[in-house]
Design a protein around this nucleic acid. Structure first.
Lengths: 350, 350
DNA sequence: TTGTAAGCGTTATCAG
DNA sequence: CTGATAACGCTTACAA
């Protein structure tokens, strides 16, 4: 068990392909092939190289490989935040699918700032990723110019409507929220409030709000019962929303959150005030976060396949990277209304 | 605005430093310096190079830079899951601090499997990260051998007790849970249950459980009221825990979750059963997740500085990478009991 | 302040 | 099936 290592100025000491080649009495390229196309080596040669590599603790240097082959097997991902279990699930889907093909994930978060997002992408591009994954389609012009000029494959997630840079996977936030609102109205609710997202101007949240507005307008209900707070804490936002809307319209009999977290906050506030959910106040959410199934009462919400979205995105990237034709049409993964206990007819109507 | 680009077989078309050098009538190394040590160029030269680089849309190739300099400015991170807001926060702390120094983050998740973790690290090492961040200190021997052989800086997070590979940041889960349990007992609770984590054998959860046991034993209370379910859904686990423990010990008057999510699940189940919290049943959590402050009643819990842990980890890595001496002693970031409404004396005692 | 030359550790290409 | 050689695009080391 000899160790042939070089001491360099950097941390660590790595055996190189050359070290392995010498010890195994083959050429450098044979070592390379032992790792990239083992089936094309004579079984004995392969075995010998593998043995030597193992003994030397050889770990191929992918950096050199990238430079030489111009394929990095890395995908860059920028999310607005990691503290959103939907994005977290989506990233796990991405990782799972990408790892299967030997791809890795370079991650950063933008705190919902398009400018920061563009900066981050610019930096990540220095590492020559084979593809890029972004959330939503609210990007700075700088970013759009950059990625289109370079022609790198890009997938936008949670973004079906609006302009697409390259590829997209998502569902219609508008349709989903309109459906949900209609469901609430169908239960006989008349004064339906809406708790909006804290950061204005994000298309998918505007879609949701517009879906809500479209539904209440079509039913001749008031369309002004919309609350939004600058508080970044979503539960808190839900609590405040319920309080504020109730003050504005005492007859409020339902409230819809732009996410489950906002809805859960509203339920908590109802519990504190002794307002019964769902008979007096119906509450609906969006996202089917883990809490939705467990909160008391269980939350009626919209489910969208977050994990699968990540998988899809990865597949589309893989396809495009491998030169396949990928449909320019955004992939609609759909949504589903999950009926639970937080939305119901009025107690009197029951 | 000329564009000197090369069309290669790969996606995209990138200008190289050589392109810039020629267009700016300087040598290649001057272009390199314009980006790495701009202050050491004549202002005019610098300006000229920058202008040309801008015009050509030049984005330096960090891959080539890494190979040449043997510094990747990349840190590899492996987490058990991203769907834990504490880890998510920690990663955000990491990203924030690392980005400040121009470092990027290569991320993967292990699904709580030490073997998978080792595999992932092996793969990530091919990209020659300058450092590694792991969660906890439950690793496979293979992983330990690998990183110690290579001598790469490693930080373990959420891990204060137990063997340390290199550096560690955390707090004492044992002390924290013992303190919390004592607090509950101090309120006059006698039959205190505990909802354990779904994956057995993870040291920090064992520490927590042992802290709980130590406290109840010291108080002469039953130490067998521990529930654990294989359900990966933590809220659900909390619900089931309350139900099961109540069946086992009808006098159960308090329940502690190994995380806030488990505790919240227990609160939801109490709500469903009409058991008043906190007067009849006191509930405590661990982690101060976002829900803790908002749930009704607000949850008494342990707060640990998750974001700061990420920052600390990054700082330690930076220090070690830059050759500074880093204390071998794990960094204790401490914890704090957050008193809210879910723990109180019995109604009769109040 | 700027430049020249020599790698870094792989893979692509072309030969045998 | 195996090999020699030339990139890949940058940085280090040493000169001028």
């Amino acid at each position: 068990m000899k160790r042939a290592r070089k001491a360099k100025r950097s941390y660590g000491s790595w055996a190189t392909g050359k070290d392995v080649a010498e010890a195994a009495k083959v050429s450098l390229i044979t070592v390379s092939r032992a790792f990239s196309m083992p089936e094309r080596l004579a079984p004995e040669t392969l075995k010998r190289v593998q043995k030597v590599a193992e003994d030397l603790g050889y770990i191929p240097n992918a950096v050199a490989g990238e430079l030489s082959s111009r394929r990095s097997k890395v995908v860059a991902v920028v999310v607005p935040t990691l503290s959103n279990s939907n994005f977290a699930r989506t990233i796990e889907g991405l990782v799972a699918r990408l790892n299967k093909d030997g791809y890795e994930l370079l991650l950063s978060s933008s705190a919902f700032s398009p400018d920061r997002e563009a900066e981050i992408v610019a930096t990540l591009l220095e590492r020559r990723p084979d593809g890029i994954v972004l959330i939503g389609n609210d990007h700075s012009p700088k970013l759009e110019k950059m990625v289109t000029a370079i022609g790198i494959p890009v997938v936008e997630l949670w973004a079906l409507n609006g302009p697409i840079l390259d590829m997209a996977v998502g569902f219609s936030d508008f349709d989903a929220m309109r459906s949900m609102t209609c469901h609430v109205l169908d239960q006989g609710r008349k004064y339906v409030g809406y708790v909006d997202f804290h950061t204005p101007g994000i298309r998918r949240y505007e879609e949701r709000r517009n879906g809500f507005i479209a539904a209440v307008q079509a039913n001749g209900c008031p369309d002004q019962l919309i609350f939004s707070s600058a508080a970044q804490k979503d539960y808190e936002s839900g609590r405040l929303g319920l309080a504020a809307l109730l003050e504005r319209e005492p007859r409020l009999d339902a409230i819809i959150g732009c996410t489950d977290i906002h809805a859960a906050g509203a339920i908590f506030e109802c519990a504190r005030r002794g307002i019964h959910v769902p008979s007096v106040m119906s509450v609906a959410g969006f996202g089917d976060f883990e809490i939705a199934a467990s909160i008391e009462p269980a939350l009626t919400t919209i489910r969208s396949p977050a994990f699968e979205m990540g998988c899809h995105a990865a597949s589309m990237l893989m396809a495009k990277i491998h030169g396949e034709d990928v449909s320019a049409k955004p992939k609609d993964v759909g949504f589903e209304i999950v009926l639970r206990d937080s939305v119901a007819p009025h107690a009197s109507a029951a």
